[in-house]
Design a protein around this nucleic acid. Structure first.
Lengths: 158, 158
DNA sequence: GCCGGTATACTCGGATATATTATGTCCGAGTATATGTGG
DNA sequence: CCACATATACTCGGACATAATATATCCGAGTATACCGGC
């Protein structure tokens, strides 16, 4: 069970975009910021656009920018954008698929205890993710980081 | 991010083994219990043996049985047996891998805020999983389920 | 000098390959039972 | 009748295929800018 590294990339890009202001930032710059494959990062950020977390602008002076203020983008949003809404654990109801079992038994109307337990744990995870926003990540970063990001941006953009 | 279905299989097998008693149960019976591919389920349960959650016995009258009382096997144990100890989110420290950055900056001694936030959420998930045991799953099942399992066992074993 | 049209360079977007992982299959090693044989 | 050796059938265990997914790449569609010619 491994989360796509696109989540890590997108989270860092969100923080960086917040630091750099509202102007669109090309994906090439972000890729050099973190030494990532440019085309794949582009594709990765498309998922963020599709889920309404970023806005993209084509053409010269184009790029990506945040679609919402940092305080309104949660880690849950970023994870969902890449991993989808489905849970990691997926109950396939094998309990009623075996040999010599009757799937119409009334007890199978209520959800499987294993599924419920897994769901409960995963809900705890999701709830925690939903409490953390990009603004919190910015607040946790060193104070000089924002200015350094803008400095690097000027250098990379040229 | 998708959990291996082996986790679901193993969890159901744990409950069933607890219901059937201490005698080893062949994997062929468990496979027919849930209509699963026998050889693959066998391989799956090997991971449970390696992690000390089940014991296996070779030869006639052999099979799998629980290595611990149901109250001492948690869902966390089962998940870890199949998914390993590593976290789903893995920080690759891209923050210090970019162009024009100095990896020896003192701020990079402290962990990445994104990594910390993800770890915190995942810890909530793990803590919740660790509180749920196989005994709890048994308690949540319908009272008649245990007897029905034994009945099916007699039929399948022949 | 000013305006409009055109070419251009730069961006994102999605269709297309490759690598990695999860899923599924197969056959061999080992062991308890059953069987047959000799005492 | 009993003990022992042997054959047998059944189990797990890990090496070997296949399918699904994540990662990576490539080229086309679209747009703001710069340039150039005409007014």
């Amino acid at each position: 069970m491994r989360m796509s590294e696109n989540v890590e990339w997108s989270a860092h890009c969100c923080v960086t975009l917040a630091w750099l202001g509202d102007d669109p930032v090309p994906v090439g710059v972000l890729a050099r910021f973190f030494d990532l494959p440019r085309a794949y990062l582009n594709k990765s950020l498309q998922a963020m656009v599709r889920h309404g977390l970023m806005r993209s602008v084509s053409g010269p002076r184009g790029g990506f920018r945040l679609a919402l203020p940092p305080g309104r983008i949660t880690l849950m949003d970023i994870v969902t954008a890449h991993e989808g809404r489905e849970e990691a654990f997926r109950c396939t109801e094998i309990r009623q698929r075996g040999e010599g079992i009757d799937p119409s038994l009334p007890e199978f109307r209520t959800p499987c205890a294993i599924s419920a337990a897994m769901r409960k744990a995963e809900l705890a995870w999701r709830r925690d993710l939903a409490t953390q926003t990009v603004a919190d990540l910015i607040a946790a970063a060193p104070p000089a980081a924002a200015e350094r990001a803008r400095e690097r941006y000027r250098l990379l953009r040229g």
